[in-house]
């Protein structure tokens, strides 16, 4: 891919990269720096892309590898809420209050899931990637993608049902799933 067209494609993907960065890191600051580092890594490397490579999946894989390395280096896991970010970012003014509450509850529920579950849900349900792509991005077998997705959906539904019933759904730190 030519450098200029590669930059253009990369620019178009920035919102999705940022969204995935938030999903992985749970932190706006870390997400921004992860996206920036990812872009710096891949700029000038368009030639490494095969014609049949999905650019978004390739970038997600780079992001995930960088974040894994970063976590290993830090030897700490820090989790800051997606929902906190959304809360201050402001809601869509056109949406109805009820819809906003529902979607806010979804974001809170998502935020309470472990990173691994958040990532597969985001990649499959929001980005629409195939299980095969997600398997490559997350470096896990397809069977694990499937079981993780199933568990994540069950957990998400349980949390949403808990909110709907008026129960307090605690926003707890990420745990491994």
């Amino acid at each position: 891919m030519a450098d200029e067209s590669f930059r253009q494609a990369l620019t178009r993907l920035l919102p999705r990269l940022r969204r995935f960065g938030m999903t992985l890191t749970g932190s706006g600051t870390d997400a921004d720096e992860l996206v920036q580092t990812t872009c710096e890594r891949v700029l000038g490397r368009a030639g490494q892309l095969r014609d049949d490579t999905r650019l978004d999946a390739w970038l997600y894989a780079v992001m995930r590898n960088l974040w894994t390395s970063e976590l290993r280096r830090r030897r700490i896991r820090r989790h800051e809420g997606i929902e906190a970010a959304e809360a201050v970012a402001g809601e869509d003014g056109a949406a109805r209050t009820e819809d906003r509450m529902t979607l806010a509850a979804v974001r809170r529920a998502m935020d309470s899931l472990p990173e691994e579950q958040r990532a597969v849900l985001m990649l499959v349900c929001v980005d629409g990637l195939s299980y095969r792509d997600v398997s490559a991005i997350m470096d896990i077998p397809i069977g694990t993608v499937m079981s993780r997705l199933s568990r994540a959906r069950q957990d998400l539904h349980a949390r949403l049902a808990g909110e709907a019933d008026g129960k307090v759904t605690p926003l707890r730190p990420a745990r491994r799933g």
Binding site: R16, E86, D99
Partner: peptide, 12 residues
Amino acid sequence: LLKAAFPESRYA
């Protein structure tokens, strides 16, 4: 719900 809760526009 997830697709609606995390639209790309929020991260533009």
